[in-house]
Each structure stands twice: as C-alpha cells, then as structure tokens.
Design a protein around this nucleic acid. Sequence first.
DNA 1: CCGAAATGTAATAAAACCAGTTACAGAAGG
DNA 2: CCTTCTGTAACTGGTTTTATTACATTTCGG
Lengths: 143, 143
Amino acid sequence: MAANSRLTIAVHALAWMALAQRQGRDELTSDQVAASVNTNPVIIRRSLGDLRRAGLVSVRHGAGAGWSLTRPPEEISLVEVYDAVEREPLFGLHRTEPNLECPVGRGIRPALGSVYGGAEQALRRELGRTSIADVLRETLQAK
Amino acid sequence: MAANSRLTIAVHALAWMALAQRQGRDELTSDQVAASVNTNPVIIRRSLGDLRRAGLVSVRHGAGAGWSLTRPPEEISLVEVYDAVEREPLFGLHRTEPNLECPVGRGIRPALGSVYGGAEQALRRELGRTSIADVLRETLQAK
DNA sequence: CCGAAATGTAATAAAACCAGTTACAGAAGG
DNA sequence: CCTTCTGTAACTGGTTTTATTACATTTCGG
C-alpha cells in the first residue's frame, strides 16, 4: 500500500490553524500553512478544499483572504478529517473478477467486504477518540 | 491511497486451501490456486511466499510439489495474514520534513505517530477476531 | 472602480507502487 | 535423468501521489 500522507497534511494544517487562532490570528493563507508543512501551497489548497467541502474550515477569497476553522478544535475529530480527505477503501478487492466456477471465487467478495467494513469501522471509531486539540496538545508537549 | 489487494489475494488463497483440505486435497500448486483467484501463478507464489515466511503455510519443492496449511484454518487469524503481507504503515507521515522552526512542525510527527499507532492497533485487533475458517464459512453461505 | 492579493483548478512531470507477464535457475519426486 | 513445480529477477503498462507552473476568478482596500 503506497501509504499517502493526506491525513498527515490535513491534520498538520488544522493543528497549525488552531495554534494560530489561539494566538489571535484567525485566518491563514495557503502560503502560511504551506510554510509550516513545508510543501507547495497548491497541495495545501487542495487539502483545505477537501476540508471545506466537509464543513471543517471556511475560506474568504480575494485580497486579504484566508482560511479559518469553523469550529473549536476540541470539536474536530480525526475521523471527520479522515472521511474528508480519504476516498479509497482501506483494502482493495480482486483487481480482476475471481473464478466464479469455484465456490470460493463465487462467495468471497461479499465475505471479505463485511470483514473489511468491520475493520474500517474499528479504525474510524479509534480515530474518533482524538480531536485536533488533542493532537495540538501532544504536539506542543514534545519538547 | 492506491488500496492494494494483497490481503484479499492471500485470504482467498488460504480459504481455498482450507476448502481443498476439507475435501481431502492437502496440497495445491500455485497454478491451482491461481485458477480460483484468477490471476497469474507468480502472484500467488509471491503471496504464499510471504505466508510461508510467516509460518502460515509450508511448501514442498520439485515434482509433485505443492502448498499446504501448517495449522487448522480456525487457528489462522486475519491479523496474522495482514502482518505477513502488508509492510507499509497505514498512514504516511510527511514526505518532506516539516518546518522545524514552527512549533507544530517540530512536534507533530511523534504526536501523529502515536495516534496512527493506536488506530493500527484497533484495526489489527478487529482483524484478529476473524479466522480463515470464519471467512470460508461466510463465503460458502453466500448462495 | 482599479489593482493587488489570494483562491480554485487544470496541466504536466517525476517518482513510486502494483499487478501482471516472461523467463529461467534450482529443487526434488518418480 | 526427466519432468514438474518453486523462487525470483526483469520488465511492462497503468495508476497514484506529490510537486510545480500557470492562469482565470474572486474580492478587499484604497
């Protein structure tokens, strides 16, 4: 699995926005976020665009524009971020249809689908236990 | 995330081997497994090779060779299969080092590491609740 | 109302990964 | 010894990911 870093980038952006907010800066541009994440501003705009579509951040256009959180960071859980930025299921099924003349080939896809669904639920449940505020607190504790 | 199908292929192979075993065929060649999964025998040999290194199957070489389970299918849990075939962590950290002059950039990686570790544990715990025998039973129930 | 500043998005590129395929050396049973 | 099958390397086509450039669009501030 080519593990992507979409969740990492989105959480980093949100945590940084939460810290800036605490310091009185309610809005950040994609350039400012990109400077902390150390990537290209377009990557940040794409990621924050996903979060905007999920209702987690809002944006103002034009000159003096910027991004801001729509909720206090205590009320943004990582599962919402996960759902906002991650589209693919965790495990892929067969790329080509299995042999339907084999009893295993016939029935395995729904069986796997239910197992995979349960595993994803467990993952999402665990992510739901952590908020952006939690991540920020742990981040600032690291000396 | 380009979700790969390694877990699917490995579980399919093991379920098929479990069914064959129940029918008196203790050994299968990679060609026979590939016929059910509907893929190339080399893919199966690579997958079963991972499972062999994890101790879940054994192989005999040469003419009349084949693969067999080393344990009853009730005692093979999906988390063992997952660990055998999946090397990458679920979520990638930053591809390039974040800006260490930013307090968030400095501390976020260990913070995310601990969150991601917990999420993976939850996933693995859930996968541990299902065995190859469970998958086979559900597979055969699907009409 | 004009210009500056910022977003949204398309197009492109390089790197990585995945599934599939061919090929072949090596092992081992008969 | 010969046949069969594994183990693995090499390569291919396709997809994904991150990064980058470019530009039309939006809107604030003066």
